[in-house]
Design a protein around this nucleic acid. Structure first.
Lengths: 200, 200
DNA sequence: GAACCTACCTAACGCTTGTTAGGTTTGTCA
DNA sequence: TGACAAACCTAACAAGCGTTAGGTAGGTTC
């Protein structure tokens, strides 16, 4: 019927990838078995090898998709900010974009945040380049926003901010009282002005 | 020869615990095998069961020791601050104490920070009470230091700070250029005043 | 010196793991 | 109609897992 690849079908490969991402998030790399992934997809374990050459390759694919989502979100946020000079607006919008990628774009990004350091060394090595390029985008952003600070200082501030943002994957519930937008505002405010606003 | 338990011997049990903590940090709970722990201790896998009734119980023991270290460090910091009112000094000293526990008190605390969420549900449940009591200490501290803010707001600020502090376990190298003290100062400053000090 | 405990070892158990070889079904294309 | 490939299944493999039963060596206690 269809012309083929124009309207993208949910292929078997993509369904394996989806199931794998979700299980990797919940159970980590070693804690997730190919038989679990197969069962969640609706196929048998051996059939996974028709789409991926190994469990490691499957995990690399999940992690890479995760970073692609974040890089796209970053670029989109940057485009939407073309007309603004306000440092606070820039920071808040990029924090919101990072958190949205974690909480609203499926488990791919979350897998990256929670399971990266538990992965085998070869897996980490395969993902590091793309991961670095995302971090470089933030470094360059900070150098534009805070020209008075030196590079080392800004790298440290970025790592502190990343720690705060990525840790939210472990305690924040997007279905709870706080929305992702409010969380982004809180983290952004905290990052820019600190907590001394509350001193008596 | 000795009178027995007065000078604490490095018993077999403690050596198993040490090896286990280090391996859990590097490889996570599922990624670490009892045979690896046994080999690192210098005994055989089956012998571990003379000291611990299961792999889960061993992990619980490691995590519990980790929190005890942090609670002790917190109390010690609080005692040493008895004469001071300065909010910034209080924050910096407690941040330093938390980071010291991570980087200078062996792998027990680090295991807690990096491997807690990858543990089986039963393990987490067994450790949660002590973990909560540590977090409560911070909540109470914040309510004293920032009486103008409400409880919810302070909880959020604490979670942001915890995220930033605990994430350092994944990138900070205590043998590198920055000392733990300098890192503590940077995170404490960031927490209190934010980054706007660098605006042009 | 007999009884007993602690700290280990040996050797295996049942089970699960990632992976593979070979077969079957289904749909496309010439 | 026949060739072909994509997408799956079956059934097994070697290796490794947590765990256990039973044994041994050395020290302490009565």
């Amino acid at each position: 019927m269809g012309v083929g690849l124009q309207t993208e079908e949910i292929t078997g490969r993509a369904r394996v990838l989806d199931a794998a991402a979700e299980l990797f998030v919940r159970q980590g790399y070693v804690g997730t078995t190919l038989r679990q992934i197969a069962a969640a997809t609706g196929i048998k374990a051996g059939s996974i090898y028709h789409h991926f050459e190994s469990k490691e390759a499957l995990f690399v694919a999940v992690l890479n998709d995760g970073i692609v989502v974040m890089i796209d979100a970053f670029d989109e946020a940057q485009s939407s900010l073309a007309g603004t000079d306000d440092v606070a607006v820039h920071v808040r919008e990029h924090v919101r974009s990072h958190l949205s990628a974690i909480f609203e774009n499926g488990p791919y990004t979350t897998a990256h945040v929670t399971s990266f350091f538990s992965a085998p060394a070869e897996v980490r090595a395969a993902v590091v380049p793309k991961r670095d390029s995302y971090e470089q985008k933030w470094n360059q952003l900070f150098e534009v926003l805070f020209p008075a600070a030196n590079t080392k200082e800004l790298r440290l501030r970025r790592l502190i901010l990343f720690g705060a943002m990525n840790a939210t994957a472990e305690w924040f519930d997007p279905a709870g009282n706080l929305t992702v937008d409010q969380l982004a505002t809180a983290i952004s405010d905290q990052f820019l002005q600190g907590v001394t606003q509350y001193e008596s």
